[in-house]
Write a protein that binds this DNA or RNA. Sequence first.
DNA 1: TTGAAAGCGCTAACAC
DNA 2: GTGTTAGCGCTTTCAA
Lengths: 354, 354
Amino acid sequence: MKGRGNRRGTLKEVATRAGVSVAAVSKVLNGRGDNVRIASLTADRIREAAKDLNYVPNALARSLRMQQNHTIGLVFENFGAISEGPLFYVHMLDGIAAQLFSRGYRLTIIPEIDHDDPISTVGDGRLDGIVWCKMPTSPDIVQALSRSPVPFVALHARPEEALASTVFVCCDNAGGIDLAIEHLVELGHTNLLFVMEEGETDVPDAMERLEAFRRGCTARELDHRVTIWHHDLREMSAFAKSLPRETGVICWNEYMATEFVNRARQVGLQIPQQLSVIGFDSTPYSATTNPPLTAVRQPIRAMASQAAATLIDLVEGRPVSRNDLIFPCTLDVRASTGPVPSTRPSPSTQRIPS
Amino acid sequence: MKGRGNRRGTLKEVATRAGVSVAAVSKVLNGRGDNVRIASLTADRIREAAKDLNYVPNALARSLRMQQNHTIGLVFENFGAISEGPLFYVHMLDGIAAQLFSRGYRLTIIPEIDHDDPISTVGDGRLDGIVWCKMPTSPDIVQALSRSPVPFVALHARPEEALASTVFVCCDNAGGIDLAIEHLVELGHTNLLFVMEEGETDVPDAMERLEAFRRGCTARELDHRVTIWHHDLREMSAFAKSLPRETGVICWNEYMATEFVNRARQVGLQIPQQLSVIGFDSTPYSATTNPPLTAVRQPIRAMASQAAATLIDLVEGRPVSRNDLIFPCTLDVRASTGPVPSTRPSPSTQRIPS
DNA sequence: TTGAAAGCGCTAACAC
DNA sequence: GTGTTAGCGCTTTCAA
């Protein structure tokens, strides 16, 4: 409907109708306080003309001139499929949106970004700053971002290499994993398994959790193992049949944990009687499994909100004191964890069937 | 970080470096096929200069010139609190986003729109079209929209008054309610209650459902009643104590229905033994109640997708054949509905008429 | 095949 | 107090 005929009025038209110059109109209609030195009579005339003409200032022109658009981009490659994933992302979205809106910024969703040249996607003037969740941390990207004209905030763990121009907001992954291990230890478990998804091995949060698991188990002299499964958990039945020595399982995220619990029960594993399971990211979604999932909770909403707030600081030229912000986790104990089984299943009841 | 020092290169700079005019650069770098009549040697030189300068075309300038921005606005006043509501909205978001992105449009979220003057919020040139969910249908708004420079698509039932300039996408509310009534009737229920939230009485979908309920019950000669409760369902305990004659309940939406089921059980009502409950909008969320909720399902994702597709048609100047699109509903029978109780509670336990 | 120039609608420095 | 004017970075006739 390009030629809908309902063109909006422009500054110049208003000026003509009010019999003044465009500068006067600009000052009255859009000017910042101190610049406005216009006779109130003229001002009234201008406002009236504007109303008559249904004048709406063109934000594009203004942004082009002012070099800022009051809108923040969210690089969010899961979009289009959030409803299929964990509620985690919905909470994140909410936290970012709420902060942005209350500060007068708009939010635009960037479904994909060119990883080889991120700037070309977001450096076109429409965005004042970017929140990037699950930003990969390859040296190339780190490099590219350092010469970005717009500031970035990443919503995940900070990688090794220093990178002063980007701010990282994340939870204390290591602390969260420690909470989980400690809980299991208190229940008597001494042999733990960490399960991760394939394809997540370059996600910084995932790796942090994995490392923390290893460290935490080693420090407590626990038997432990790390395993990487397919997204569909096709390894589950073999796992169940193998009657693993591990009695406690920590899954790298909520979604995987809920799936794990459901699948485990399908193949006859009793939870928590035979196996205790803990997830990471505790949202209401976690509690819908049967039994409800014990999970590490990260304060995602606060984190998202902080990420947005920090980005606005950067955009508006206020210096930020730290370029990584780490939030502590807590543990929501529900029913997927319990005391370690006192007796191991007798060998006779083991697999055989099939 | 306005003066970050990482300014991007401009067309003119590229032109200078390549020793050609800006027109040539524009043609090579951003021109549409047929205009490009440039010697390939020059073209190469230009491309090289662009790369050297890290040139990224300024989308603001281009949009200002082209009068379109390839971005669609979503008026979504629930934003910032989606995670607290039903999954319905998340699915909607997904459907819209997926469609938009696949067609090369961006999505920006509009947290609130001035109901007295919607155009001023969205008519500033940044948005090529608007999806408005839960758009009120007061004559004023209808009127305002008719002279909008950007096309609108509303994601809900079409109101009475014709309004050629706006397209409405919704589900067949009446058909859905009929499905629910029919299901209840088959189970033997003859006395039905429709529960709605206060504050939703001007939501077109809600009203359509209410009317359909009345019509459907009347046509089948069923006893029926409509009631409006507070959002927190504080009326529940009085309702339970009153030992209502109704044995079947239809709630106007999913969220309310899930809450209804939970509260009902808290105050001692057995579901479905004493009361059958049906919700509207069946998402995975519906199934998490205990017992799982029987609910009308609307094909929300398809609807959202269609809304976006239609809007793009409008934006790109293709005529649309119909200005209301209605999708049929289905019924997901789960466990919150069952046969009508064979024995009514004895009169002695009732609290006498009044 | 290439370039000059006129704007898209707005802001702000500077003149009067 | 108010007007003139030079851009912001881009596209697109039109002329060369």
